[in-house]
Each structure stands twice: as C-alpha cells, then as structure tokens.
Simulated assay, not measured.
Amino acid sequence: MSLQTRYPTFDPAWKKHSTGGWYTIPCPVCGTPDAVTWNARSLPGPAGRVPVCRECLPAQRDTWSERVAVAVDQGPRMWNADAAAWHANPGAKVAPVAFALADGVGDDPEPQWIAQLAVLRVAVAACHEGSVAAIEDARRARDEYYETVGAPLSQRGDTVLAVVTPLERGYQAAWCGDVRVWAYTDGDLNQYTIDHTAETELLEAGESPEMAAQYRNRVHRCLSIGDVESVFLGPDSDLILLTSDGVHDALTWAQMRQCMAEELSKGTGAAALRGAVQSLVRAARAAGGRDNATAMLIRTS
C-alpha cells in the first residue's frame, strides 16, 4: 500500500461539509479507507492529535498526549482559518511524531478548509517523509485538487504553515509564511523562524520599522508558492512553541515571554502547558488582536 493512501486528501466531499459537519479520512497508520471520522469544527482529536482508527489506537498510546497543548481563539473573524494538529507514529520511517500549525490566508471558508486539511496531511506525511518534504507534498496535493476541479486562481484557498519533527538529536522546523517556531529554554524565549513577509524584506533593505510594519501581513511564501525553508533546533530546547500571527503580531516578545514564564513557573506538566497556550491567546485578544490566534506548545522530554 502506498504511503500516499494514508494521507488526508483535499476531497470535495469533505469540503461540502467543512463548515460544521463530519467527514472521513483514511487511517493515517494502516491506510484503511474512510476509517476515521472527524468533526471539521473541532481540533483533530485530544489536544490537536490526528485521529486514527480503532484497530490502530492501542499502538498510539504514548507519552506525547501529556506533552502537547493547543489553544485556539477565533476572535471577531467570521471564520477560524487557523488550524493545528500533531501525529504520532512510532513505526514511521523518518520521525515518530510531527507537529503542524497553519494559518489560512483570508477570512472565508476556502482558506479555512485548506488550513485544516494541510495540517492533517503535513503532520501525517512528515513522519514518513520529513518536514520539508511533507509541506512540498501538501503543495502538490493542493495544486492537483484545484487543477482537477478547474478552480480559477482567484478562488483557490491558501495557507501559511510550519511543521516540526524530531531528529536523532534536536528538532527540525520547516515553514513557509509567517507562522513562527520558538524554543523556550531556561526561562528564555527564542524565535527560530523568519517571517516570509514584505515587512521582513523591507527591514532587510534598510527601511524604517514604522514603514515596513505597514506590509506585515503581505506574505510572499505560502503553500501555493515560494521555497520551503528549514531550521535546526538544538537538543537543549526544553519546550517548542508554534504561533500564528494572531498571537505574535498582537504581543511583544517580552509579553509572550511573561505569559510563558508565569504559567511554567508551576512546572511543565500537562496543566501548565495548557495554561501557557491559553495565556498567550487570551493576552493576544486582550491586547486588541482581531485575527484568529493559535498557539501549540510541546514539551520535548
């Protein structure tokens, strides 16, 4: 059986019900067709976990469930185009687990659908192919779907996203767009990704921060276009954080670090991880953020 048969597909039958119904995907472990049912409005499984069929569920019992936390706030937007998912597959060839976060470009059902399916597909594929290849696979699948249905470019949904997978020592993060990957170690928060935006290009060209900030949300790399970039996170990274721009655009680095420090001073158990991501999205909303806000936090050991 081809690995591709195990990946969630860009399926028009699912799209029809993406605003609140249920849809089915093949089991990402054994590949059995239509074996997993999921509600499109919810996160995939507990704390964002990609669901598997009942036969594969016993083999999925591991410690990751207590080491991952996700918080999502739709805010005043009409649609929640943020999505986060993670998938554990101890028998996979490349990585035993993968974590993904996406932010659909726009405020309508099409980017919401693309973001939701992208994180499901990328989280599953990254275990078998690695983080960079997983994003490139999702790009091909998206393009093939839109070519098949003959959708004009103006009606094609798009998303920015990032995926993180463990290496033999440390972690690799791959991304396109302005989803950010951070490491929180010994009370310090460090950003590892660079936003693929016009703002970044203007700052590198020497423009003033005030002028460049006007172009903060103009991304020039996303699922549909641009190179996928990757970065290495060292094995000393205690916690890995992924955020959508609804979090990190609304908060300063110092505010994000304070949210993390206050909650994680209680420890790094499951409750503390949930408290940290919830604190981040609440603070983003309190700061006046009007975008979808999503944070995913992973304890690496």
Score class of each variant (00 low, 15 high):
Arg77Ala: 12
Gly226Asn: 13
Glu229Leu: 13
Val281Met: 01
Leu57Tyr: 12
Arg61Gln: 11
Thr9Met: 08
Glu110Ser: 06
Asn292Ile: 14
Leu203Gly: 05
Tyr7Lys: 03
Glu229Gly: 05
Val70Arg: 09
Arg285Tyr: 11
Val72Thr: 15
Ala198Gln: 15
Asp108Met: 07
Leu297Ile: 13
Gln191Ser: 09
Ala84Phe: 12
Pro28Phe: 02
Ile240Ala: 07
Leu3Thr: 12
Gly157Trp: 03
Trp64Gln: 09
Ala261Lys: 12
Ala271Lys: 12
Glu129Met: 10
Asp143Trp: 06
Ala40Pro: 10
Val281Ser: 02
Leu241Lys: 07
Gly206Val: 12
Ser301Gln: 14
Thr37Gln: 15
Leu251Pro: 03
Leu223Thr: 14
Pro26Trp: 04
Ala69Glu: 08
Pro46Val: 02
Ala284Tyr: 08
Ile135Tyr: 03
Gly31Tyr: 11
Tyr23Phe: 14
Asp82Val: 08
Gly234Met: 08
Asp34Ile: 00
Thr200Leu: 00
Glu199Gly: 08
Ala85Cys: 13
Phe10Gly: 05
Asp107Cys: 09
Gln172Val: 11
Arg299Gln: 13
Val247Gln: 06
Thr243Leu: 11
Tyr184Trp: 15
Val29Ser: 10
Val105Glu: 02
Lys16Thr: 08
Leu264Val: 12
Asn217Glu: 03
Val122Lys: 04
Arg140Ala: 02
Ala286Val: 05
Asp227Gly: 11
Ala205Cys: 10
Ala212Tyr: 14
Leu3Asp: 11
Gln278Ile: 00
Cys30Arg: 06
Ala283Gln: 13
Cys30Asp: 10
Ala250His: 10
Ala134Lys: 05
Pro51Gln: 05
Arg257Cys: 07
Val97Thr: 10
Gln60Thr: 15
Thr37Ser: 15
Val68Leu: 07
Lys16Asn: 04
Trp113Glu: 06
Ala102Cys: 13
Leu242His: 07
Thr32Ile: 02
Thr165Phe: 06
Ser18His: 11
Arg218Leu: 13
Glu110Pro: 01
Ser2Glu: 15
Glu207Pro: 01
Gln112Trp: 01
Phe232Ser: 09
Ala250Gly: 03
Leu203Asn: 02
His87Trp: 14
Cys259Met: 04
Asp188Gly: 00
Ala59Thr: 07
Thr165Ser: 14
Ala81Ser: 15
Gly187Glu: 09
Ala95Gly: 03
Ala254Lys: 10
Cys222Val: 01
Pro76Cys: 13
Arg121Phe: 01
Phe10Gln: 04
Gly20Pro: 07
Leu264Arg: 13
Thr294Ile: 12
Ser208Gly: 09
Arg139Thr: 04
Ala100Gln: 03
Arg282Met: 02
Ala98Val: 09
Val181Ile: 12
Gln278Tyr: 00
Ala126Gln: 03
Ala134Phe: 10
Ser279Met: 02
Trp64Ser: 10
